[in-house]
Design a protein around this nucleic acid. Structure first.
Lengths: 207, 207
DNA sequence: GCCGTGCTACCTCATACGAGGTATTGCGAT
DNA sequence: ATCGCAATACCTCGTATGAGGTAGCACGGC
């Protein structure tokens, strides 16, 4: 029994760390390293690894999209997310996309290799902390695509009137969207809605 | 010539990666690993390393405070920041605190070990990307402590009136602070001010 | 067929917000 | 001693914001 692992992470230092951890284990080996999502999808086709360790925020193609692409091509591939982001939205989206595990980068090396074994064995890997984060926000209330769009513009400082103009709707409609957003997120105003959305991984700052 | 290095980072995986990189070099060695700022300060006293590699966001004591503490105790200690945060405010604060280098975690392993050599040699290590980020925001306009406090409350969704109450000032004063904040950050409203402050590392979400 | 939901749009109304201004105090630097 | 600036506070004014409500339309699931 020899577990093959593909690492997908844009940080060379992290890749080196994972490689070092896995090389110490007799029952597993790193068969490839990808530095972005697109390369991860390509290398997974080439190496057909037992387990893919996947970061989330990466250039070219983010981890969620890469997970979806890999699962579409190989529905049985085991993918474990290994990232610094602990927002419930990130976790939900990763698991929905087909990840079978979700680890944070403050996980101990021993637990990472154990997670790889667990995943290779076909079981899910959700540490208590991650599971607790999911439980914090039940029932799950996702923002709709339109609401996400409106919130992103609000984060950029656009007024309701300007948001209405750029999405081609009336200001009244924008106000309704924002009311729903604040209600779903439990925010008192648009500013707190943005803060909460960023904390929970619903919105990202890079755009 | 043998350069001793202390690693301070809360991610075991990152520590393993740095350790692996440095172990490959004949002229340097890792003498210790700290998993938070407080431990970094303590271990630096014990090992007196030539170079300290320091993360910024950590439990117990953040990297900036740790840099200040180490430089206060040992003004000649060379400290190189190695972090994922690329906001100009983070970079400025680290260099002000006494860091002699600032690397991002997407730096190649080869460049990390070269940076360690450069730092041990007494020279500064500021890659072009990091320097460019600093140049983007010249002249430098720091928020005052009061402005930071007001902005943090605004991010939490407090109204001007409520902010005034919690800081024991009038609402008019809060409005003036917010005007200055928006002016300094180039924001059109409080929401964009929060977004910009988070992007630039002026404000953090964890509080 | 029916129901839920996303999206749209309108209404009213009170208040919060931000732009513009002036001005005083106190502190640290030159 | 003087200058600059942070911090405080007041003023006016127009507009933006958010709470509350109602309602139509389209689409997909059951």
């Amino acid at each position: 029994m020899n577990i093959s692992v593909l690492i997908t992470d844009d940080h060379p230092i992290v890749r080196a760390g994972i490689r070092a951890l896995i090389s110490n284990e007799p029952d597993m080996q790193v068969v490839g390293e990808a530095c972005d999502g697109a390369e991860g999808v390509a290398l997974h086709e080439e190496y057909e690894p037992d387990v893919v360790l996947m970061d989330l925020r990466m250039p070219n193609m983010d981890g969620i999209a890469a997970i979806r692409a890999i699962r579409a091509a190989s529905p049985n591939r085991r993918i474990v997310v290994l990232t610094t982001y602990d927002g419930d939205a990130d976790i939900h989206r990763a698991l929905d996309a087909g990840a079978c595990g979700y680890l944070l980068k403050d996980t101990l090396g021993r637990e990472v290799v154990n997670a790889v074994r667990t995943a290779a064995d076909g079981r899910k890997v959700i540490p208590p902390g991650v599971a607790g984060r999911l439980a914090e926000f039940t029932p799950r209330l996702d923002l709709t695509p339109r609401e996400l769009e409106v919130l992103a513009y609000a984060a950029k400082g656009l007024r309701n009137k300007d948001i209405a103009r750029v999405i081609g709707r009336t200001e009244e409609t924008v106000k309704v969207h924002l009311k729903h957003i604040m209600s779903k997120l439990g925010a008192t105003d648009r500013t707190e809605a943005v803060t909460i959305a960023l904390q929970r991984g619903i919105l990202h700052m890079d755009s």
